[in-house]
Structure formats: structure tokens, C-alpha cells
């Protein structure tokens, strides 16, 4: 049995019909074609599927699509563009914060969520914020450097 869901995705109204058991992750990818949200573990452990729900970082594999009805979802597709990267994306590129890129959408959104709340985080705060985002390539040092640099470049009082 499917159910209609209406929500706002990346600033525009979106709707789809899904079974109740469909996760938000699957709905974003399969119903809306937003494949930038990556499916890693699909059980809450890796952070690859992170999106913003009403402006807060959540894991889209730990949410039913029907639970997102009436809410606002932001995915990586709304962040930067190939010609004009978001400062966090630019910093990841400069500091070798990605290799295969599988974890990257989740890392970018998690970093944006951190910098929204803490304009000038120290290394420990960055590590703590990123602790739930698994990366099999970079060894994390580049990720941490990039987020610190993005915060620095943005300067105080962004």
C-alpha cells in the first residue's frame, strides 16, 4: 500500500507515492532521482546518507519517507555547483579531504551543520562532529584540516 507524501526538497515542493516502509534515503534516490545522497550501511552507522531535515543534520536511512511529510529536506544537490563550490567543498578539495567521494556528501552536510552552530570550532570539536562519518579513503586528517580551514576562511561573524 502506498501513501502520498508532500514535502519541500532543496527549496522546491516535491511529492511522491511510497510504501510506508520506504526510508527517506530510498525515496530521495529512487523517487526524486537525487542520488547525491549516498547509501552506505543503510543502518545508521556510516553517515553517507546525511541530509538536513528542517535545517538539522539527520541520517536519511533512519527516517521513513512518510515521516518527512510537510517538512523541509536539504540534500547535497543544493550545496554549491560545479562552477561555484561551497566553501566547505572548496576546502575539502584543497586539503585532500576526499578521494573516492562516497562519504563526501554526508561529510559536507555534517560540516555545514557544525559551522552553522559553531562558527570557530577547534580541532576536537571538528573531530567530534565528524565522528559519525566513516571514510575509507582519506584517513580523516584531510577532512579535519578542510573543515578547520573552511571555518577560518569564512572568518568571524560570517
Amino acid at each position: 500500500m502506498s501513501r502520498p507524501v508532500r514535502l519541500t526538497v532543496n527549496g522546491a515542493p516535491a511529492s511522491f507515492d511510497v510504501e510506508d516502509r520506504t526510508t527517506l534515503l530510498d525515496a530521495l534516490r529512487d523517487e526524486l532521482g537525487l542520488t547525491g545522497t549516498h547509501a552506505g550501511c543503510e543502518q545508521g552507522a556510516c553517515g553517507a546518507c546525511s541530509v538536513l531535515l528542517d535545517g538539522e543534520i539527520v541520517r536519511s536511512c533512519l527516517l521513513l519517507a512518510v515521516q518527512a511529510g510537510g517538512r523541509t529536506v536539504t540534500t547535497i544537490e543544493a550545496v554549491g555547483s560545479p562552477g561555484r563550490l561551497h566553501p566547505v567543498q572548496e576546502a575539502l578539495r584543497r586539503h585532500h579531504g576526499l578521494q573516492c567521494g562516497y562519504c563526501t556528501p554526508g561529510v559536507v552536510l555534517t560540516a555545514i551543520d557544525l559551522l552553522e552552530r559553531v562558527a570557530d570550532p577547534d580541532e576536537e570539536e571538528v573531530r567530534e562532529a565528524l565522528a559519525g562519518n566513516l571514510c575509507r579513503c582519506t584517513g580523516y586528517a584531510g577532512l579535519v584540516d578542510a573543515v578547520l580551514a573552511a571555518a577560518r576562511d569564512a572568518g568571524p561573524g560570517r
Binding site: 538539522e56 543534520i57 539527520v58 555534517t110
Partner: peptide
């Protein structure tokens, strides 16, 4: 408890 992303829910 968990991560910020799971604590939000």
C-alpha cells in the same frame, strides 16, 4: 549518545 545526527532524532 550516538552522533549529533542521531541525537537530533
Amino acid at each position: 549518545v550516538g552522533f549529533p545526527a542521531t541525537r537530533n532524532r
